[in-house]
């Protein structure tokens, strides 16, 4: 049995289980939750940006544009590339996610 970790998203209060080796975003999607917006799932678009507030994790490759070194230092990372090593507390505020910041950029089509 794979190790199971609990991921808690502080802003919505939602929490879900994530298997070791599984990305936080994938675990959230599998359980039908929507506390983090889902984009490309490949570390490329920056849509699923979260901040890890507590816990240990590993990261896969992410676009430097969306996760420059200073963001990584603050543990502002992309949920699709975050693999928990312990239980995690994360935060995805609408104002910091890709969704909200980019929504204003496509107003011409709305």
């Amino acid at each position: 049995m794979a190790q199971i970790y609990r991921i808690t998203e502080q802003y919505s209060g939602e929490s879900f289980e994530c298997e070791a080796g599984q990305s936080v975003l994938k675990a959230m999607e599998q359980r039908g939750m929507k506390c983090v917006p889902v984009g490309c799932r490949g570390g490329g678009c920056g849509y699923c940006k979260i901040q890890v507030l507590a816990g240990e994790f590993e990261c896969g490759k992410m676009s430097k544009v969306h996760v420059p070194p200073e963001a990584l230092e603050k543990k502002e990372v992309l949920a699709c590339r975050v693999y928990p090593l312990t239980d995690l507390t994360i935060e995805c505020r609408p104002s910091q996610s890709g969704l909200a910041s980019k929504q204003t950029k496509t107003t011409a089509l709305r």
């Binding site: 889902v38 490329g44 678009c45 849509y47 969704l99 950029k105």
Partner: peptide, 9 residues
């Protein structure tokens, strides 16, 4: 689909 308009590289 919101993603189609906003998810880009």
């Amino acid at each position: 689909n919101e993603r189609f308009l906003t998810v880009l590289t």
